[in-house]
């Protein structure tokens, strides 16, 4: 680990001022410390934001939910409002990492977490994300865990977050505060596809930090759920995952929110699947037909070709268990 200076921000102003001077924010630290130890991350100064007042979970005026950036994954997953309104978020959280890591890691940090790509994490390997221009060892290397959607010639690393998949499905937004003030971005615009600049992962400006994520109000009743497919039963990143939320009224699907994980360089929204569902009546056939589009546009690599089919089946399965067959 490279040496660094450390300051704990007493308030938001102090944090932003340190951030503007190039300080690196640290909250739960589970990704950052891990990557600092691998020397993938080499910040010269850390700004500890853990005591900032960003720990509230509140219902917004319009009936959505705002989760403070420093709410831990454990707290968010156990929060009665989150559980009542958006089971898909709780399921995604509780299927993530381990109990210990969920006690440490925060909602803001979870969205910011960096890929598990083995070549990214190995400083002796070529990686455009870590070291722009050095190449991508994963393209022709071992890429079973890599993305099939949203990839580029520069990078095929999977976004590792489960939570972000649930948030993306629900059209959530990210609230940011920076030296130039506050702004809000849709999550899907906040997280960037690699393109030719895989080193740039978020639409963050210098010194900006996440203050909250907001999940919009959705028509009720809303059934939702998260399915994570992986080799072992716990404590593993997803091979594929599906976040699904359905609003069914009068036997017809009026609203459908679907996103996929484990397959994209960013949490992968599935608008085609959603369009197939809206206006239809739940049935096994509908789930299968809609899920057939889950892997549209996929670019499989040497070792992850199975993910396209697995993704379709994952989406179908979650649609079926969430939507049932009326």
């Amino acid at each position: 680990m490279h040496p660094f200076t450390y300051t704990k921000a007493a308030d938001m102003r102090e944090a932003l001022s340190a951030g503007r001077r190039g300080g690196r924010y640290i909250a739960g630290g589970t990704t950052l410390v891990d990557l600092m130890r691998e020397t993938v991350e080499r910040p010269g100064s850390l700004v500890d934001i853990s005591t900032l007042p960003l720990r509230e979970v509140t219902v917004t005026e319009r009936g959505g939910l705002r989760i403070g950036a420093l709410v831990s994954m454990a707290e968010a997953g156990a929060h009665p409002k989150v559980r009542a309104l958006y089971p898909v978020i709780c399921e995604a959280l509780e299927l993530s990492a381990s109990a210990q890591l969920r006690n440490m890691a925060t909602i803001g940090g979870n969205i910011m977490q960096r890929t598990r790509c083995t070549y990214f994490r190995d400083v002796t390997a070529a990686c455009n994300k870590r070291d722009p221009g050095s190449g991508c060892a994963a393209l022709q290397g071992y890429n079973r865990n890599h993305a099939i959607l949203g990839t580029s010639d520069s990078c095929v690393a999977t976004h590792p977050s489960d939570l972000a998949v649930a948030l993306a499905a629900l059209d959530s937004t990210v609230r940011l505060l920076g030296p130039d003030g506050e702004r809000t971005l849709p999550l899907v615009d906040f997280l960037l596809k690699p393109g030719s600049t895989p080193n740039r992962e978020q639409a963050l400006r210098k010194g900006e930090l996440i203050t909250a994520v907001e999940i919009p109000a959705l028509p009720r009743p809303l059934k939702s759920g998260y399915l994570k497919v992986r080799d072992r039963q716990s404590y593993e990143f997803a091979l594929t995952s599906a976040a699904v939320a359905l609003h069914v009224r009068g036997g017809v699907i009026r609203e459908a929110k679907v996103a996929a994980g484990g397959v994209g360089t960013v949490p992968w929204k599935l608008p085609t699947v959603e369009r197939h569902l809206i206006g239809e009546r739940p049935s096994h056939r509908l789930w299968a037909e809609a899920a057939e589009h889950a892997a549209d546009g996929a670019h499989p690599l040497t070792h992850n070709g199975f993910k396209a089919e697995l993704l379709k089946r994952t989406v179908e399965r979650r649609l079926r268990t969430v939507g049932g067959t009326a």
Binding site: T118, D122, A137, Q140, R144, R232, Q233, S234, E236, F237
Partner: peptide, 30 residues
């Protein structure tokens, strides 16, 4: 039987899952 597989990148002999998050051993839940 179900999980363990040390993976080598044959281009340079690098073991690509040389950690306990990627080399999978059974957990409690298994």
């Amino acid at each position: 039987a179900l999980l363990e597989h040390t993976v080598t990148d044959h281009r340079d002999g690098r073991i690509v899952n040389a950690n306990l998050a990627d080399y999978l051993v059974p957990t409690h839940a298994d």
